[in-house]
Design a protein around this nucleic acid. Structure first.
Lengths: 346, 346
DNA sequence: TTGTAGGCGTTATCAT
DNA sequence: ATGATAACGCCTACAA
């Protein structure tokens, strides 16, 4: 176990001072060419690498941005990371990722261990528990210490910072309108329970579209999947609900799900019942994921453009870090959703 | 922008020395109770947080482990991360993640920026480009600096360290045997080009099973998906190949794909042709992902247990960091695959 | 009981 | 052209 060689060691070995070595390695003209070359050769031989920790301690900056996401096994979040990475690399920033696992305390700990000089700024999506506790002191503290934050997706009004959000309402509205345009009259909406804000916004969009087109909003057509359900219980729950629903309403001709799992499960129900997609029911998923794309028939989907969200967030953050935008000027950018038409709609 | 308060500032404010403050905050008995309490109260008021950078510079340790993965939008890798997180949290280690994007230089840079004291060890899967270049100096250097590495999935014989790998050959063999047991005689194998080691190992397992059961290995039944193909070209490639294949061999009755995308695409081909799964063709996917699970019919799959791989890797690393295992004792742990039977096999 | 000094690795400033 | 020193924030052995 040979430790990394330091300036000091090189200095000693070559009988010069530490500052001479430092200057020589940065090719400072002050140092005589001969000495410079000698030192550089020696450094290369011993594979000298500046210690990044010491550098950040000194410079209070590290050209590194940290992402904190609630979950790592999640296609949307990983897409966002990909977007951040691409912009960050372009602009010469490193990226490190930490996971809060939707826990308040892990979010706090992650921020604290990262905040002291080792990173220059944060891009993050708020943990569920934090949302529930409404305790945002770690965010405000970080910001007041001069470390900028960009929030994405799960946003919080009380925090004053740059934000990148999705237009959930409009996305759902577009989806619903698409179904209506292609002749659907009785559209099921599969969503989460009311307290989840994203689900609510999407439901609102669904309602808007129905009302705008003079279709009545039938509450019984809205399936709310219980939050407590474990992933292997969701299928039978949705199957049951759809079973009941199709008995009452044999004329159901459309369905929208607020995430890819609910939607594909619903689609599977119809496949099992040998109800033809899209001839008898049209289906649209809210999703950035692979499920709708590889489903058969493939599912029309509302894409949230995770990568674009990431790119935008990275741009906002780096612009702030480099003083391109003012410290106290905060913007909220809305990334529009797109309807990706596939084979589950007419 | 109020900066974080430091020991020095507290000391000045309270007219004591820095070391008194430091000791007081660590509740050192040396300091008089009164002084201690005064300092602690003051520190709390000003929300003192030790600077983690300074700490790691001093301690050369940070209770943090770094994961470097080739891709972030990848269900398997995120599953591994989840496994690592769970063990690391249990044993009081922080985890940070970096992405090499399958690039050699990004892998090197990531390691260099992280290695200097800011992290205690690495868990990583080697970038494709590194594998191609066969340049492993950054690994050996890191190890020789006393920073342990655990390799997972994409392993390299030349590097001397702990490893966690998947038994790809056996997994493929089990899958093939399952098909044979249920009556399949003509089994298509959809794989990558030969230079990808994982694909090769799986092909070997496929062959083993056929030979063991006295079935001839027909090279024309092996579809090699070209590496250069972009994701939206893969579908038509596989469809074409299968079209040709089913013409020549109308009696094809089984298929195995080396990843979930190839497999589900093949499955979609049969669905389109209205060839019944599993009545006419049985299908098995190599996959840890969501696609086989939510497909209709759901696909039998060889699970690689990403979470377990992560847990094992984390355990190996932390045991080494804490001196529970010897520095120069390296083990390679093989995580067995499991066949998860679903509806695409009989 | 409290304080001083040195060191972790680096660089900028100010001598020599 | 080179070197000494201080500073970033923290901790600890040792001195007072």
């Amino acid at each position: 176990m040979r430790k990394n060689v330091t300036l000091k060691q090189i200095a000693k070995e070559l009988n010069v001072s530490v500052s001479t070595v430092s200057k020589a390695l940065r090719d400072n003209e002050e140092i005589g060419l001969e000495t410079r070359e000698k030192i550089q050769a020696f450094a290369k031989m011993y594979n000298y690498k500046p210690n990044s920790i010491a550098l950040s301690l000194r410079n209070k900056s590290s050209q590194t941005i940290a992402i904190i996401i609630p979950q790592i096994v999640n296609h949307f979040f990983t897409k966002v990371i990909q977007g951040i990475e691409s912009v960050a690399n372009e602009r010469n920033y490193n990226v490190i990722i930490a996971v809060s696992n939707d826990s308040f305390s892990k979010e706090v700990i992650n921020m604290q261990t990262l905040v002291n000089g080792s990173i220059d700024g944060f891009i993050l999506s708020v943990a569920k528990e934090t949302l529930k506790l409404k305790d945002y002191h770690h965010f405000t503290e970080t910001i007041s210490q001069g470390v900028p934050i960009v929030l994405f997706d799960r946003q919080v009004d009380e925090i004053n910072c740059d934000k990148v959000i999705i237009d959930d309402e409009k996305g759902a509205q577009k989806a619903t309108e698409k179904l209506i345009e292609t002749g659907c009259k009785k559209i099921v909406f599969v969503t989460t329970e009311d307290f989840v804000s994203v689900g609510n916004l999407r439901k609102k969009g669904y309602r808007n579209a129905l009302e705008k087109n003079n279709l009545s909003v039938d509450e019984t057509l809205i399936i709310k999947v219980k939050d407590v359900l474990k992933s292997d219980e969701i299928e039978s729950f949705i199957f049951n609900e759809l079973e009941k629903l199709t008995q009452y309403h044999p004329d159901i001709d459309g369905l929208i799900g607020v995430n890819e799992f609910y939607t594909i499960t619903a689609a599977n129900f119809f496949k099992k019942k040998e109800i033809k997609i899209p001839d008898e029911v049209s289906i649209i998923a809210f999703s950035d994921g692979v499920l709708p794309k590889y489903s058969y028939p493939s599912l029309t989907a509302v894409s949230q453009h995770g990568d674009k969200i990431g790119e935008t967030a990275a741009r906002l953050l780096i612009d702030k870090l480099e003083g391109i935008t003012q410290e106290d000027y905060h913007q909220t950018i809305v990334i529009e959703t797109d309807l990706i038409e596939r084979d589950s709609t007419k």
